[in-house]
Simulated assay, not measured.
Amino acid sequence: MAAIRILYVDDDDGIRRLASRALTRLGYDMTGAGSGAEGLERAGAERFDLIAIDHYMPGMDGLATLTALRARGDATPVVYVTGSDEGRIAVAALKAGAADYVVKTVGADFFDLLAASFATVLERAALEAGKAAAEAGLRASNARLEALLGEVNHRVANSLQVVSAMVRLQVSALADPQARGALEDTGRRIEAIAQVHRRLYSTGDVESVDMHEYLRALIDELGETLSSDVAPRRLRLVAEPIRLPTDRAVSLGVIVTELVTNSCKYAYPTGGGEVRVRLAEAGGHFELVVEDDGCGMAADAAPRGTGLGQKLIRAMAQSLQASFAYDQDHAGVRATLRAALA
């Protein structure tokens, strides 16, 4: 193992020689510099594990030398040496970037104190370097995992797109209106989930989804598939930029898809109409409201279709640990869901 290299900056030749002799016996590789300017020159030309700088030097004193070192980006640990026990000098040195300070005294005790300070500062520097390396490794690992998750989401979105295309092909081959409708509903449910995965791989955040952007894309997609010249539908979205974890975003997207689909199918049997979707945050919770001004729904009415949509809504609401209810006083249909953000 290579010896630890120390640069000792002090204008006193005798102190430098004594320090070099005492610390070399302890295994350090000592290099001396007789002035602040020489110390800066040596520090710039060679690599040292630690630099000791004396305070009282003619011309460029210790504080000026330390400041110049830090100004050029030299992060080598510095032990500041002063012949004065004035606290203000020690404080100034520590503020300027010194790792420790030692008060110079007459006798061998000074070199013992100096060696103890070196050992402490070097140990602390090694711990900090290890911590920095561990943090850098963790950041690199997280970046790799995020890239991997992004790729996974990309592939999942592509796979769901293929499934959706297969469903559409099957729809076009069916003559039974009920079977066609059921498959079209399935396609919309798949698209709601695919939209989440598209958001995840295209935004760089693989842990949460911006619900405003997600719902905007989802509502636009539903508007294209559920509206026609015969029965035009106006879908209106008002959503705050709430971020939800991925699994909660999927559940909410399925709920919105089912509620909007039901309103578009059944609210306006004689013509076009508007369906409104609102999402807002309130006190650690979010509230989703989907409503129309159509013919309404009786409290004890049987499902108009297979009933699968209502079962999905209840299942997704349960996964969100959400409260879900229909407003019986509203002229059309108004469904409200309230759940925690996380």
Rank of each mutant, 00 (worst) to 15 (best):
M297C: 13
A108C: 01
A267M: 03
E207Q: 12
R198M: 09
A64K: 12
A143S: 13
K311E: 14
T67D: 11
A108G: 04
S20I: 12
L113S: 15
P269Q: 11
L320C: 06
A231H: 15
M211K: 01
R47V: 14
Y214T: 01
V162S: 09
G97S: 07
I313N: 01
Q318D: 14
R16P: 00
L226F: 06
R338S: 12
Y266I: 06
P269R: 10
Y80E: 02
R234M: 10
I313P: 00
R47N: 13
T257A: 11
L127A: 14
T76Q: 05
Y28S: 05
V106L: 12
E274M: 08
R5W: 01
L337H: 08
E287C: 05
D247N: 12
T82K: 02
R70F: 09
D327A: 13
A182N: 04
A147P: 02
C264W: 01
M60F: 08
A22N: 11
D210L: 03
A298M: 08
L244Q: 02
A175S: 11
A173V: 01
I255L: 06
V9C: 10
T65E: 06
R155G: 00
L226Q: 03
L200M: 14
A315S: 15
A37Y: 04
P241W: 06
G253T: 07
M297P: 02
I190D: 03
A217I: 04
L215N: 02
A179T: 10
G34M: 04
R70T: 08
A340I: 04
R47G: 13
L138K: 14
N158D: 15
L138S: 10
S35C: 08
A68G: 11
L63N: 05
A52F: 07
E207D: 12
E213Q: 13
M57W: 06
D29F: 05
G27S: 09
G83L: 12
G36C: 08
A147Y: 01
G32K: 04
V275L: 09
D13W: 07
R243H: 13
G36Y: 03
L7D: 00
A132E: 13
G283C: 03
H285Q: 15
R139N: 13
A339P: 03
P58I: 04
L308C: 08
E38G: 04
